[in-house]
Design a protein around this nucleic acid. Structure first.
Lengths: 229, 229
DNA sequence: TTGCTCCTCACGTCACGTGAGGTGGC
DNA sequence: TTGCTCCTCACGTCACGTGAGGTGGC
């Protein structure tokens, strides 16, 4: 019953390299059985289970040091702490990347607008844009330094000043959405009733009390859509 | 007029390390003047301007190799290409990080719910959750492999199946938003007119023809809000 | 005996940070 | 002559990938 596996068997079944398995062992994260006078690695059920847990945590981008922490003092609490920290860092990273992406889009559209002259590097002198970029940090993931988020917020404030037609740029996290469209000469009363009935029938407002219910009107083609979230 | 600067002067005025300046020189990105019989580095105006451009591009997380490309065949087109590629990668990264963050939140809340037993590692066996994690890639930024986005979409589909109360999880990128609220016994006709007038007066539909115009009704407290994007 | 699996180094990655140890310039 | 600036190696980072060169097991 207590089956043991060779390194290549483990490697194949988890679709990871043998180098990875040796590396995890080297840093003390994954243990193997030591059979006497037998140099080959042998993995028992415990080791395999451990590996599976490591892989899951790695897919969630938990650093190996944090994974080691979770396994070391194997407290319920520690795992939550590590997760919360990761979540916070991810939030910051997502905000940072979104800011950078917006800036790159702006640079790219400015470049496209001016196909004529060679404004390529003049672009890198545009005072408005540069002031926003300046607020960014050079070091990638130094979110431990408290400054970074302030800098990003500053960058976001500045970015909103660049074009006066834009009101504000915010970050919207992923949400659960359901949407549909409808065309009618009296969309308000007709569709709203349809949806109200649907919500009542399915008891959606009970199942999901924090539901939000929008409708969106395109006056010209006499279309109506409602979206609830 | 043609002032030249020492390495420490440049370092201080741009708030970068001298190591960085030497490294950029080492990889052929930043040139210095070579004075005879003088081993110290001397930077002229061109070099300083170049450094400033490099720093800006680095803050936008353009890799040094791509920056070298931009400077090498200094075509307008190349710069746009590099930016577009970065934007696409950022999109993917943001989606990936958002997916991971959602998963971590789910793990964390499940851990908090079950303070009683030691389900810490059982959590890592929850088949529903694991099936979602499995769809994630182990290697961090291998988005050059086309598979990754498919995997992420698959992960997003699976994540939506976890709780049957949830309909769909999507990623909403940052948008420009303006919103306001209003309370009235006949919100539809009253507020809509107010906003229609505002839009006509400001010619918002002309300035921003891709505007979207939502309204959102909270029936119970007789509140109405409209949001346009 | 022939393949095949497995082993242990060890270098490369990316963009620098951080010393060590030494020399030139005012 | 004394500090100070500047120089050139060179190791460390993070999580492995990618060989090189050699040995054990069926």
């Amino acid at each position: 019953m207590a089956e043991s596996m060779t390194i290549s068997e483990v490697s194949r079944s988890f679709n990871v390299s043998t180098r990875l398995l040796r590396y995890y062992e080297q840093i003390g994260l994954l243990l193997r059985l030591h059979k006497e006078d037998y140099a080959y690695r042998v993995y028992d059920e415990d080791a395999v289970r451990r590996l599976q847990q490591i892989i899951i945590l790695r897919k969630l981008r938990i650093p190996l040091k944090q994974i080691a922490l979770i396994f070391k003092d194997n407290e319920h609490k520690r795992m939550v702490e590590v997760f919360q920290e990761s979540i916070a860092e991810l939030e910051d990273e997502i905000t940072a990347l979104s800011t950078i992406r917006d800036l790159l889009r702006k640079f790219a559209s400015l470049l496209n607008e001016s196909l004529c002259a060679d404004i390529r590097f003049d672009l890198l002198r545009d005072t408005d844009l540069i002031s926003v970029v300046d607020a960014l940090s050079l070091s990638k993931i130094n979110f431990k330094e408290e400054r970074s988020m302030d800098e990003l917020n500053k960058a976001n404030e500045n970015i909103s000043k660049i074009r006066d037609r834009e009101v504000r740029i915010v970050y919207l996290p992923p949400v659960t959405v359901m949407a549909s469209g409808y065309i009618h000469y009296d969309p308000d009363n007709t569709t709203r009733k349809l949806y109200d009935n649907f919500i009542c029938d399915t008891k959606l407002h009970v199942i999901k009390p924090d539901i939000r219910y929008f409708d969106y009107i395109r006056p010209k083609p006499a279309k109506q859509q409602r979206i609830w979230v």
